Amino acid sequence: MLSLVLVSSAFAQKAVMEAPKGFDQPTAGSATGKLDSISYTSKTVGTVRKALVYTPPGYSKKKKYPVLYLLHGIGGDEKEWLKGGDRR
């Protein structure tokens, strides 16, 4: 009886990539959006929930925009991402 065994191993590449200095700092003269705090009634959990909504500079209700939902974990709140997601 002949047995065939295939062994495969993968190695992660060491990619050292750093963001440019100051990437996380506001740039003077650049347009900024708006952050609003809203409340809505959740049909799923049956209570009033809070959320933060960011609208980009020049936002128009007549235009469609891509959406990114940032969800917090258990014990967090709608401002968790503003705190860097860190509960310390």
Rank of each mutant, 00 (worst) to 15 (best):
Met1Cys: 05
Ser3Phe: 12
Val5Pro: 00
Leu6Pro: 02
Leu6Ser: 04
Ser9His: 02
Phe11Met: 06
Ala12Ile: 06
Ala12Tyr: 05
Gln13Arg: 11
Lys14Leu: 06
Ala15Ile: 09
Val16Gly: 11
Glu18Arg: 15
Glu18Asn: 15
Glu18Phe: 14
Lys21His: 10
Phe23Gly: 01
Pro26Gly: 08
Pro26Thr: 12
Ser30Asn: 10
Ala31Trp: 00
Lys34Leu: 08
Leu35Ile: 08
Leu35Cys: 00
Leu35Phe: 07
Asp36Leu: 04
Tyr40Asp: 00
Tyr40Ala: 14
Thr41Met: 04
Thr41Cys: 01
Lys43Pro: 03
Thr44Phe: 15
Val45Lys: 11
Gly46Val: 05
Thr47Val: 13
Thr47Ser: 07
Val48Arg: 13
Arg49Trp: 01
Lys50Tyr: 07
Lys50His: 12
Lys50Thr: 13
Tyr54His: 04
Tyr54Asp: 01
Tyr54Cys: 01
Pro56Trp: 06
Pro57Tyr: 07
Gly58His: 13
Lys61His: 01
Lys63Trp: 01
Lys63Asn: 10
Lys64Phe: 04
Lys64Ser: 13
Leu68Asp: 12
Tyr69Gly: 14
Leu71Ser: 14
His72Lys: 08
Ile74Cys: 08
Ile74Glu: 14
Gly75Ser: 08
Asp77Arg: 03
Asp77Pro: 04
Glu78Trp: 05
Lys79Phe: 15
Lys79Pro: 11
Trp81Ser: 15
Trp81Asn: 12
Lys83Tyr: 14
Lys83Asp: 15
Lys83Val: 13
Gly85Asn: 04
Gly85Trp: 14
Arg87Lys: 15
Arg87Gly: 07
Arg88Glu: 15
